[in-house]
């Protein structure tokens, strides 16, 4: 059914059935309808209008909160946080303050400033001690860890909430699939190209091996023939260069693969996971 039609019905109901504060209620419903139909830029305008005419500050929490949400939906995280802060300041009840605080944390996770999110969460853990809040804190800690590519820590947080938590499986998957960067590097130290093979870059591995054999051969040959200067030059400028490039590549490939694995998992979570997301 047409989304707009539903919105109109909602607005009409709110607009015509409530005598007191009608204008503001009407305005709030109108802004909400824009928000619901994903017109976030216009929704912000209307929330701002609501806040401007709301002389009794009845909407100063919800208005600012919704503006924050709209900015967040538009990927404007800095602005979103600014308005969540305003909402937090204007909240009349503790539950509102907490709601805004959690939004600040979630926006920081999305923005990639996970360290800030984690700091906020640690602070919150000191202030709150009811089990529901602690669960929530752990949950977002888990998300912050996932977004900072620390899947072990993420898994630990989810396990503390519930040993059968849905996200643990995904964390496990990533942990199992990930390549060991140290191993890749070490492997290539011992045998040039081996680390590349380990991460699936066979051609590059072969090329590296070839280059190292070639220049290694020339270096050794020069030294055997007592051409010390040639040996030093070839060894330094070529063999050593390709040897270093070889283990640098092994490390780079492992890191690259690991990011791909993490990103695949994040994509999956975004599309398939039904629980709350930042």
């Amino acid at each position: 059914m047409n989304k707009n039609l539903i919105i109109i019905i909602i607005i009409s109901l709110t607009a015509f059935n409530l005598p007191a504060q009608t204008n503001l209620r009407w305005q709030a419903a109108y802004a909400d309808s824009l928000f619901a139909s994903a017109q976030y830029f216009d929704a912000i305008t209307e929330y701002k209008r609501l806040l401007f005419f709301d002389k009794e500050n009845k909407y100063s929490f919800s208005g600012n909160y919704k503006i924050g949400l709209s900015y967040k939906k538009g990927g404007k995280f800095d602005d979103a946080i600014k308005y969540f802060r305003l909402a937090e300041k204007n909240a009349k009840r503790d539950s509102g303050k907490l709601k805004a605080k959690f939004q600040i944390i979630r926006t920081n996770i999305l923005r990639g400033t996970t360290e800030i999110a984690l700091n906020h969460l640690r602070q919150l853990a000191k202030e709150l001690n009811d089990s529901l809040s602690l669960k929530k804190i752990r949950y977002w800690k888990g998300w912050a860890f996932m977004f900072s590519d620390k899947w072990d820590s993420a898994k630990a947080e989810f396990t503390r909430i519930n040993p059968n938590h849905e996200l643990i499986k995904i964390c496990d998957n990533v942990i199992n699939q990930k390549y060991s960067v140290t191993f890749a590097k070490l492997f290539s130290y011992i045998l040039p190209g081996a680390g590349q093979f380990y991460t699936g870059h066979y051609l590059s591995g072969l090329m590296s091996l070839g280059m190292n054999v070639l220049w290694g051969y020339f270096t050794v040959k020069a030294f055997i023939a007592d051409r010390v200067f040639d040996g030093i030059v070839t060894g330094n400028l070529l063999w050593f260069r390709f040897y270093r490039g070889n283990f640098q590549n092994a490390e780079k490939f492992a890191l690259q693969k690991n990011i791909e694995i993490a990103n695949e998992a994040l994509r999956k979570i975004q599309l398939e996971y039904k629980g709350e997301k930042p």
Partner: peptide, 23 residues
């Protein structure tokens, strides 16, 4: 300037996917 400029152009919902920065 950065703060002020956000709304000086209209913008739409951001549908980008969660991703870490790669090399």
């Amino acid at each position: 300037n950065l703060i002020a400029q956000t709304d000086w152009e209209r913008w739409d919902a951001d549908n980008s996917v969660f991703q870490l920065k790669g090399i």
